[in-house]
Design a protein around this nucleic acid. Structure first.
Lengths: 143, 143
DNA sequence: GCCATATTGACAACATAGTGTCAAATATAC
DNA sequence: GTATATTTGACACTATGTTGTCAATATGGC
């Protein structure tokens, strides 16, 4: 058994993150397809739906770790599709708040329920404590 | 302290994976820029460079967890750029082996060294045992 | 209040990634 | 061996994501 230096394990973790994110996106696309959504749009929907406060596009982008412009594009489409609606932001004339419409809320809730079954299925064989440690490590990496 | 069910932690891990992959791609782009590469192309270069056997495009795509077509596109560009070269595959007339050229090897080696410093820096504050557990969990997820 | 700096939305250009489709090559079942 | 299914490269199309730029808006130092 070769002892690997920590940085090599870190590198393997990075490569595995790249690999896993592809499959997660495919699963996300599949789960959200029946609502005419994609994994990316679902991320936006979920971020808004789970937030305790009103969010602007810039704030959403920081939550999901993507560029402001990428999120703006998705939001524009979802506004068009009637999933999202803008609300005046008293603190900023241009940066409006983005909220879920009734339809957006409904889909968010149904996807939330659907996603739980998926998460249960795929986490079944994973040790809970290790899952918690994984979350901590990933948070440390994204700092 | 609220006790979270395992599937909820799993969901948080998934969201953190999405978040972290954005930053990793940015770092990959920055590190490989001096060699006229991007994170995506580096992944292809690294996969070939680290493999113990000759690989076809399809095999590379399975390694990195991306579609055959996406990898094919990158390989075509890198063949053009003189980083890669094709070799006849005696087992398959169409599916040629993709190898690194001298230039490709050189850049692969230099990026490998550069990447070690990066990995050391970002893994400095992370517990090694937890990093190993994270790798295991991610492998379980990508199954 | 005034000015330099940062944030934000809007738009454009380009890179990357998935899906669908087709024909060629290979593998498998019988 | 032959028919069928799978794999593969090639190509087109669409979705996603980053970077760069600009003007409008906030923010902070003074």
């Amino acid at each position: 058994m070769i002892i690997q230096p920590k940085h090599e394990i870190f590198t393997l973790v990075v490569l595995e993150v790249f690999k896993v994110v592809g499959q997660l996106n495919i699963d996300g696309d599949n789960m959200s397809r029946e609502f005419n959504l994609t994994a990316s749009r679902w991320k936006v929907l979920g971020t808004i739906g789970l937030s305790k406060q009103l969010l602007t596009v810039s704030e959403i982008s920081r939550h999901v770790g993507q560029s402001r412009q990428a999120v703006q594009r998705l939001v524009d489409i979802m506004l068009d599709d009637g999933l999202l609606i803008m609300e005046e932001n008293p603190n900023h004339k241009r940066a409006k708040y983005i909220k879920l419409t009734k339809l957006g809320q409904k889909i968010h809730e149904r996807l939330y329920v659907k996603q739980i079954d998926w998460a249960k299925k795929y986490s079944a064989d994973i040790d809970k404590k290790n899952l918690e440690r994984t979350l901590e490590v990933l948070k440390q990496i994204s700092r």
